[in-house]
């Protein structure tokens, strides 16, 4: 089984977000970049599926040279080879076109990625890649088991779950509890250094969603504390000040 795992290079979940250059650029100062937590689930499940069914895992990232440490981490966790499409990931459509272009030549049985990136939270790349390739996309996937050529998949929906059956190839956007995050071991880290990381040029597609400026949400004005034995006061505030109940 050939699996393609798409990984994002995103700020650690504890990052304080800030911008520079008149709020037009993300401030990377002091930021630690990681494999997107949802992509980490996808990668972990890919490693388990490979253990069960054999095959190979290719990791792909659309990003500039700075993302290579993140890609090496994916190799250390268990990808066999990696591809970096050498371009800034401008928007979802641009990224989807890059991934689809690689996937077209690769004959993958399964394409896994996170349900969304944690920078732009779009949750749309899997659907777009699926549409370009003419194959189903399922997200967010909580469980994915393969038997022969068929997969049994659990998808989360509002207030519950949906169970699906689907033939490969298809794309899944993953989330917990599809697998436990894997921490690379020493052997993985050593072997990652020599695994192939191929850098390719992007397709000529243009982004259609171009960020002009970033904004921070207004700061909270401070909490109003109410004594636990004066909850009538709290109810009054919620009703007449906030007007939410």
């Amino acid at each position: 089984m050939k699996i393609l795992v798409c990984i994002t290079h995103v700020p650690d979940t504890t990052s304080r977000i800030a911008f520079t250059d008149g709020n037009t650029k993300f401030d990377k100062n002091g930021i630690q970049f990681i494999i997107g937590p949802y992509d980490d689930y996808a990668l972990a499940r890919a490693v388990e599926l490979k253990e069960q069914h054999g095959g190979s895992i290719t990791a792909i990232n659309v990003g500039e040279a700075e993302t290579e440490p993140t890609i090496r981490k994916a190799l250390a966790i268990g990808a066999d080879e990696a591809i970096r499409v050498n371009a800034h990931p401008e928007d979802a459509i641009f990224v989807a076109k890059q991934i689809a272009s690689v996937a077209k030549g690769g004959d993958y049985d399964l394409i896994l990625m996170g349900r969304e990136s944690i920078d732009f939270n779009g949750g749309q790349v899997h659907g777009m890649v699926g549409e370009i390739l003419g194959i189903p996309s399922i997200s967010p996937v909580m469980k994915l088991d393969i038997e022969g050529n068929t997969a049994k998949v659990t998808r989360e929906i509002e207030g519950g779950k949906e169970y699906l059956e689907i033939e490969m190839p298809f794309i899944a956007g993953c989330q917990e509890p599809i697998a436990e995050w894997k921490i690379p071991n020493m052997r993985g880290i050593m072997s990652a250094r020599t695994k192939p990381l191929n850098v390719i040029d992007p397709t000529g597609d243009n982004p259609m969603n171009v960020v002009e400026v970033f904004e921070m949400p207004p700061a909270k004005s401070g909490v109003k504390l109410v004594e636990p034995d004066n909850l009538e006061e709290l109810v009054k505030l919620l009703k007449t000040e906030a007007k939410v109940i």
């Binding site: 939270n121 749309q124 699926g130 549409e131 509002e158």
Partner: peptide, 23 residues
């Protein structure tokens, strides 16, 4: 935005060649 809205918007964006704004 929902578990149906997200994937449908993504696929339709490719089908009709539309720009997409999320969230």
């Amino acid at each position: 935005k929902s578990s149906l809205g997200d994937p449908i918007s993504a696929r339709v964006a490719i089908k009709v060649g539309a720009a997409l704004g999320s969230n």
